[in-house]
Write a protein that binds this DNA or RNA. Structure first.
Length: 593
RNA sequence: GGUCCCAUAGCUCAGCUGGAUAGAGCACCGGUUUUCUAAACCGAUGGUCACAGGUUCGAAUCCUGUUGGGACUACCA
């Protein structure tokens, strides 16, 4: 690493010049800002007290020391307390030669000892996936890829919330409607069909409530006494009792939903190593609550409900089991956590779940800790912000939900129009064209969502369709296609023929090389932060730098064969980095577009 | 009431382990194509980094307070 070597020499300089002992960790150097001349910058201000000299003099002295002692350094300049170090060209030629066609450039070596499980998606089975789920799925997939690139051994899973009152509501509406409609005879996607019945239930429920309120009931009473909700509760009890007819309907309708989800997952390009079902984990959760009672870390209230007291940890008391012995949301999460650990033995377990559940995961971690589970410290909630619409949150009741399938289809339609208008795809088969348009559409959507810091809420305006220009997925895909086009025209090359003495490093070439050099550090940073946005924004910088280079300097028409060869190698590495980085975002890059 | 999160250009977002003149894209205005893909490139306009204090050589970044917005605080999931 270039930085490490520079740091060591700077440490030596501080020692020799000022008798200062500084560990290399205390010395920070950063890439020089583009307004200034140089490759790396060392800020001397923190060492002025020890050097007992002014900033410029100190920087000059260190710079002089470096030029005579460090072979990498060719020259330096000083502005105030900033020592800008310029490296010799051979450093960059070495870098390019070493990595320009290395397939795993930037990736950490695989480490089988570090096992990580990423849970994401985790839908309910009573309604179709929407924009919020899209953010979840894209984040989960990408974070898993980022961790893999950082060497971790990664598994993914999806916990389906397949039981509870919500699915009973859809079931009830379907039963009442005569149990006739199926995905087959209506041609509807299974999750959409079940979602429609959920809406039908809600409509009926609302009208019953309204009638009760008019008769003089309070809202709260009406909510609890409307006939529909009572019937749904009967159904839930039948389910819990194992009533065969109820279970059969439940299985049938959930099956429809899974088929529907699979279609959407496939379109999004996400998949899971393992599915967990709440219906299969909640019983284990109940057992564990009993275990906690035996250990004395939980307690029972007079009505037999089970609680944990977290007031000492700054939280409240939290219910773990209802008075009637049935489980609540966290009960199954307790069971699932145990099951996950048994099956995957991961030291880190990541939950990609919205920030509305920050409290829930604090509780979950504390519960596991108090149960003495060894995996408790490894529980990590990757808490992402909500996707908001211009008028606020998505609400299914107000019809402001952006449906995942609809959004994807609209994006594909827009991409198809744009591609046709540009007319650069002559000669492609219809199938290839379709694939290209899907690649572009998904690229635009995924990039739009992933470029934003996961922890922040983000805004999506359905009226303004997602752009294909500027800092967007298609811009980067286009840059890749451009590079591939150049490389196709270039034909085969032999890097060994490159004579460095014949090659000049122009500003756009050097800027691009410097950026490409940052790729491994970017992967590491993105992995540590678990933020695909870091990769997305980096990729944009690379694409921009390439386009600048492409515009300023000609590649194939360059008459100096060594300069030409060098530029082709530079294109090769750039193309590779764009493709590799986009791979971590789950975005494909086309050969032409 | 309590806990947590957020506030940067007209809009959407970077920058936050303290460093140089706070950056992009979109929108708006102007320019670039006999030349390797113009989904591109170059330029102009646009800022009290919510507000007020503090810490220090230096604060968008760290600390405190204020204001504004959001989430959570269910025997829902």
């Amino acid at each position: 690493m270039i930085e490490q070597e520079l740091k060591q020499h700077i440490a030596q300089a501080l020692q020799q010049l000022y008798q200062v002992q500084a560990a290399t960790e205390q010395i920070s150097i950063e890439p020089t800002k583009s307004d200034f001349k140089g490759d790396f910058t060392f800020v001397v201000f923190p060492f002025l007290k020890q050097s007992k000299k002014g900033p410029e003099q100190t920087a000059n002295e260190i710079g002089t020391y470096l030029s005579s002692h460090c072979a990498l350094v060719s020259s330096f300049n000083v502005i105030k307390g900033f020592l800008n170090i310029e490296l010799g060209n051979s450093v960059w030629f070495d870098f390019l030669h070493q990595h320009y066609q290395q397939p795993l450039f930037g990736f950490a070596p695989a480490n089988s000892a570090s096992r990580v499980l990423v849970e994401y998606s985790s839908p309910n089975t009573n309604k179709p996936l929407h924009l919020g789920h899209i953010r979840n799925n894209l984040l989960g997939y990408s974070v898993a890829e980022l961790l893999k690139a950082n060497g971790h051994t990664v598994f993914t899973c999806n916990l389906i919330n397949d039981r509870g009152i919500h699915i009973c509501k859809s079931m009830l509406a379907w039963i009442k409607a005569g149990m006739k409609d199926t995905p087959e005879n209506t041609g509807k996607k299974g999750d959409k069909l079940v979602g429609d019945y959920y809406v039908a239930f809600d409509k009926q429920y609302k009208s019953e409530m309204k009638a009760l309120v008019e008769k003089g009931m309070t809202e709260e009473e009406a909510e609890k006494n409307a006939p529909s909700i009572l019937e749904a509760q009967v159904l839930l009890r039948k389910w819990e009792a194992g009533d065969s007819e109820t279970i059969a309907i439940w299985k049938k309708m959930n099956g429809w939903v899974y088929d529907g989800f699979d279609v959407t997952y496939k379109k999004l390009g996400v998949s899971f190593d393992k599915y967990y079902y709440e219906s299969e984990t909640y019983l284990l959760g109940k057992d564990m609550v009993k275990e906690g009672l035996d250990k004395g870390v939980f307690f029972t209230k007079e009505n037999q409900s089970v609680w944990i007291d977290l007031t000492a940890d700054g939280l409240d008391q939290k219910l773990l089991l209802r008075a009637d012995g049935t489980s609540v949301y966290i009960t199954q999460d307790i069971g699932t956590a145990e099951l996950k650990y048994k099956e995957f033995a991961c030291d880190k377990s990541i939950y990609v779940v919205g920030n509305e559940q920050d409290y829930h995961f604090k509780v979950l971690q504390l519960v596991m800790q108090k149960l003495g589970k060894p995996y408790a410290p490894g529980i990590y909630h990757l808490s992402y912000g909500m996707v908001e619409l211009p008028h606020g949150k998505m609400k299914s009741r107000e019809g402001t939900v952006v449906d995942a399938d609809d959004l994807i289809d609209e994006m594909i339609a827009t991409a198809t129009e744009t591609t046709a208008a540009l007319g650069k795809t002559e000669g492609l088969t219809e199938a290839a064209l379709k694939e290209l348009n899907e690649t572009i559409a998904l690229g635009a959507l995924k990039y739009f969502i992933l470029k934003v810091d996961p922890r922040k809420k983000m805004l999506f305006n359905p009226q303004e369709s997602i752009d294909f220009h500027g800092n967007t997925g298609p811009f980067i895909q286009y840059t890749h296609a451009r590079i591939r086009s150049v490389l196709r025209n270039a034909g085969a090359i032999n890097a060994e023929e490159l004579n460095r003495n014949e090659v000049q490093l122009h500003e756009p070439e050097k800027k691009l090389l410097e950026l490409l050099y940052q790729y491994p550090a970017t992967i590491k940073d993105a992995g540590q932060q678990m933020s695909p946005g870091v990769v997305a924004n980096y990729t944009y910088e690379v694409a921009k730098a390439f386009n600048h280079f492409y515009h300023e300097l000609s590649i194939l028409k360059e008459s100096n064969t060594h300069q030409r060869l060098f530029r082709i190698m530079l294109c090769t590495l750039t193309g590779h980095v764009l493709k590799s980085a986009f791979g971590m975002l789950g975005i494909q890059v086309p050969e032409r577009m």
